[in-house]
């Protein structure tokens, strides 16, 4: 218990560092670009337009308002994908600093995930724009969006801790994870309806039982696209995935962090 309080105190002491790191990431991302932050809205929109043109021909029958269906999925997936990829390098990239000063190492990982949340918020802006244009229904359930964001944030933190620690010891992780996220993307119903997999029973089973992204995206779509509470299974399953992954990530990170300095 005392150790826990001690840790929280350290986090409070370094909260301004977390803030500075997040501000740095956000500032540097679009420095020297003409449109600046507008890209955070434009870029998902452009991708959405391309994907809509390509895929709406293929799966149009099952999905109403395909642009919103697509954006709800891709916004969340893109958040997890890019935040964990950046988090993976967070310890290695700051090795020069970690060799010189004592700083809680997890701050760097946490900062990468947190700065990606800013992008997620922007891409939700893009989503609302599309909803306006397509005259989608705005329901009061959308006020519950922060619940999904918290779930997915905790999940991404856990995965980020796991990857950043693993990457210190085995650089292979970078390449494995690249392939992994590609497979993960196709195994997540982002641009196709889950019903499409009815004929492939076992693939569908894997997705609906083992893919956390399915839970978060389904939850998000229920709130935004269908204007209703999500199923209890999706809701609690999402929390379960978040906390299990967060716990594993923190555990591995804490166990190995004293050895980082010898490998970075």
């Amino acid at each position: 218990m005392a150790a826990m309080i001690e840790r929280i105190n350290v986090l409070i002491q370094y909260k301004d560092l977390l803030r500075e790191l997040v501000v740095r990431d956000v500032k540097l991302k679009y420095r020297r670009s003409f449109l600046g932050y507008l890209w955070s809205i434009l870029s998902p929109l452009l991708i959405m337009i391309v994907m809509t043109i390509v895929f709406s021909q293929m799966f149009d029958r099952g999905i109403d308002n395909f642009p919103v269906y697509l954006l709800t999925g891709s916004a969340l997936f893109e958040f997890v994908n890019s935040s964990t990829h950046m988090a993976m390098y967070s310890v290695l990239d700051n090795s020069a600093l970690l060799k010189k000063i004592y700083v809680p190492k997890y701050i760097f990982t946490l900062a990468k995930i947190t700065s990606s949340v800013v992008d997620l918020v922007f891409s939700m802006g893009a989503l609302f724009l599309v909803m306006l244009v397509t005259r989608a229904h705005f329901s009061l359930y959308m006020l519950l969006i922060p619940v999904v964001v918290i779930q997915i944030y905790l999940f991404a933190c856990g995965l980020g801790f796991l990857l950043s620690a693993a990457n210190v010891f085995f650089r292979d992780v970078q390449y494995i994870y690249n392939a992994f996220t590609t497979a993960w993307m196709y195994l997540t119903p982002i641009f196709y309806p889950i019903e499409m997999l009815d004929k492939m029973e076992w693939v569908r089973w894997i997705i609906t039982h083992l893919n956390p992204m399915y839970y978060y995206i389904q939850h998000f779509r229920d709130l935004v696209l269908y204007g209703r509470f999500t199923d209890a299974a999706i809701f609690w399953g999402g929390w379960l995935f978040s906390f299990v992954v967060l716990f594993i990530g923190l555990f591995v990170f804490k166990k190995t962090q004293d050895k980082f300095i010898l490998y970075v």
Partner: peptide
């Protein structure tokens, strides 16, 4: 600001 907060 960055370096100062790194120092805690």
């Amino acid at each position: 600001f960055l370096n100062g907060t790194v120092l805690g």
